[in-house]
């Protein structure tokens, strides 16, 4: 399922004195199978953009389609309202959305009930076995022991476990696109590493496309295949991380920090040592070692 948007624009508090463009003229295509990063400082419009992918913001200007589902404004007028609602459900089923601090959306008495919530919403009258199988599958995807946690209250779990349960609650609908807003916020380094491993595992197995909003350029450089940079509601650039981080000035102008690898590369360059790298840790180390070896000879 490809995501295609053209000239997308959005204003909060439209037609009031507080109206302000949160998104302006954004044209972007995210292909199926990508591990896509979205970066930008606070208030740059990235959250508004991802809200559109789940029709939590209605399209005001321009067009947007997710796979077969067209979300453009003229498609929902008049009698088509019911049909539009049906389309919304289909959309939300295939686009899973993990918000920032997703553990704050947990509500049910048991982990089982909470994870099953999404499945029951998206499927017409599922049988008990179907629900159980789906919950089991989702919990094992996020690396939790079904028998151990299913009857626990989600509020008795640790922070990292809560987040896994919340993500399982989204995965249970078997989305083909997964959107995550700052999934690592508030996690310790070990939790972060585990979460990225989980995302890569999902990407290889059940989820076609992963879209991650992140503030951490190191993560973006390391994991994403392509990156979109937002600034003041506009799309500044779409490129691979290695292309993007070559442009240090653009990154810093937008109030972001370059990844550590890019920082070291630039410092080396100032001292007359040029290396080429795609900014992932492994590649960077390799390049340095190669350089060292070539000088030794």
């Amino acid at each position: 399922m490809d995501i295609i948007c053209n000239g997308l624009g959005f204003q909060y508090s439209k037609k009031t004195e507080f109206a302000k463009y949160a998104l302006k003229d954004v044209s972007l295509t995210i292909k199926s199978g990508e591990f896509f990063g979205i970066i930008g400082h606070t208030g740059s419009g990235k959250s508004t953009f991802i809200r559109h992918l789940n029709a939590l913001c209605e399209v005001q200007e321009g067009s947007l389609s997710v796979g077969e589902i067209d979300l453009s404004p003229e498609k929902k007028k008049g009698k088509k309202k019911k049909e539009y609602k049906k389309r919304l459900k289909d959309l939300r089923k295939s686009v899973g959305m993990v918000f920032q601090y997703p553990e704050q959306q947990l509500f049910a008495e048991t982990v089982f009930e909470d994870v099953a919530f999404g499945y029951k919403n998206f499927n017409e009258k599922p049988s008990a076995e179907e629900v159980e199988a789906a919950v089991k599958g989702a919990l094992s995807l996020v690396g939790l022991d079904y028998n151990l946690v299913k009857d626990k209250s989600p509020f008795d779990l640790s922070g990292g476990q809560k987040r896994r349960v919340a993500i399982a609650g989204v995965l249970v609908a078997k989305p083909s696109i997964l959107v995550l807003d700052e999934p690592c916020a508030g996690l310790d380094p070990a939790g972060k590493t585990e979460l990225w491993a989980l995302l890569h595992h999902l990407h290889k197995t059940t989820v076609e496309t992963i879209i991650v909003v992140s503030h951490d350029m190191n993560d973006v450089a390391k994991h994403c295949t392509r990156v979109a940079m937002f600034s003041d509601g506009t799309l500044k650039r779409v490129a691979t991380p290695s292309e993007l981080f070559d442009d240090t000035i653009l990154i810093e102008e937008s109030g972001l920090e370059v990844p550590v690898t890019a920082f070291i590369k630039n410092e080396l360059l100032k001292n007359g040592l040029e290396i080429k790298t795609d900014y992932t840790d492994d590649n960077f180390v390799e390049q340095i070692v190669n350089l060292y070896k070539s000088r030794q000879v």
């Binding site: 959306q105 919403n121 989204v170 609908a173």
Partner: peptide
């Protein structure tokens, strides 16, 4: 608003 969005995303009606 945030929680409503999150639950809507999970198919709440």
């Amino acid at each position: 608003d945030r929680i409503i969005s999150a639950q809507k995303a999970r198919g709440a009606d």
